[in-house]
Design a protein around this nucleic acid. Structure first.
Lengths: 188, 188
DNA sequence: AGTGTTTGCTTAATAGTCCTAAGGAAGCTA
DNA sequence: TAGCTTCCTTAGGACTATTAAGCAAACACT
């Protein structure tokens, strides 16, 4: 028998693509094996188990998004940076629904620490540098931005907002509003 | 054989409790059947399939949360209402992690319309009455509030915020900030 | 080139889940 | 009490996850 040349990396990438195509919850060890033309059992020499596979996809997606966001952020500051970051986030989620769904997998603390999750916070802090917030307002603002982007995007992709035909305008008004908000953060 | 007295309602409730205990993704038809002391097959006379079961749990959770939020909202307005609603939302998610996870299930449009999902928007609009926002700002604000609550809570329950020991203070500062924000919504 | 070792895959087997079809008993109704 | 309906069981098929044991290809070296 010929060798299929399977590696953990190629498996993860293929699983991520599969997730974008058929949905993250339908990504199964068997389905992935079929795509590689090998038996299910052979995948277990590369991944620990099904959970491990899903975690790898989540970590991959986190890293990809972090790269995109970093690129979007380069050379920008203030509202420009805020909008660029927010759009990178939202666009990634729209283009890669399966990967984005994977990102919502709960990671155990060690994995989370080793993943790109930390880069997201760093970048958010970088954006906030343009707004000059003192602690603890800065930490609160990091959370608020995370929450808002994640919340908005997950509601939008879930179809939570009935399509009013002006999705884009609403999104950009919300970004405007956040910008105004950050520039006038209430002092305690 | 004695009859177990299974009904769709009792199944849904038991499934919801099971979700809170062992996690929503581990709620399986078999596990539920075991809890009722019947075989898997018998459950299919009450529910259509596994997906149907999960949707029922989601709808139940949406309704329960809507009830709680409505109760919290009664007789309050302005910031009081905002805080009461937000806390009802967050507390429910913390007390019922499985149910809250179920709420994130993507519902098809008809089911969503028939569920309590609409009540959530209504209540949010009711809160905003205290802030006197013109359209389309009001619609944007509804989305912003939804996004923020959902995003914050889901990040918090996923352990996304390292426990800094002052979670509560951060939450309440964010609510303060939202209140200020709503009172000073930027005009276009 | 030939031998041995590692690596990558297969087959085989077990167990759990989802779901359907056919049958039997419990309880209601007349 | 005969019959109908409702609720459950047994039986079984398809798919998924996972482990163990074996074989064959690739490599590593003498």
């Amino acid at each position: 028998m010929a060798r299929a040349g399977v590696t953990a990396e190629r498996l993860t990438l293929a699983a991520a693509d599969l997730a974008d195509e058929i949905g993250f919850e339908k990504v199964t060890v068997s389905a992935l094996a079929r795509r590689f033309g090998v038996t299910d059992a052979s995948l277990y020499f590369h991944i620990k188990n099904a959970r491990d596979l899903r975690v790898r996809v989540a970590v991959l997606a986190l890293a990809e998004l972090a790269d995109r966001a970093a690129a979007a952020l380069a050379g920008r500051a203030g509202k420009d940076a805020l909008v660029a970051f927010a759009n990178a986030y939202r666009d990634y989620a729209k283009e890669h629904r399966g990967r984005y769904a994977a990102m919502q997998t709960e990671l155990d603390p060690e994995t989370a620490a080793a993943s790109a999750a930390g880069r997201h916070s760093e970048m958010t802090r970088a954006i906030l540098r343009g707004y000059d917030l003192p602690e603890p307002a800065q930490t609160d603002a990091v959370r608020l931005l995370h929450s808002t982007f994640h919340g908005y995007v997950s509601l939008e992709t879930a179809g939570g907002f009935r399509h009013s035909g002006e999705e884009e305008a609403s999104w950009s008004r919300i970004l405007d509003a956040l910008d105004t908000f950050l520039r006038n953060w209430p002092s305690p």
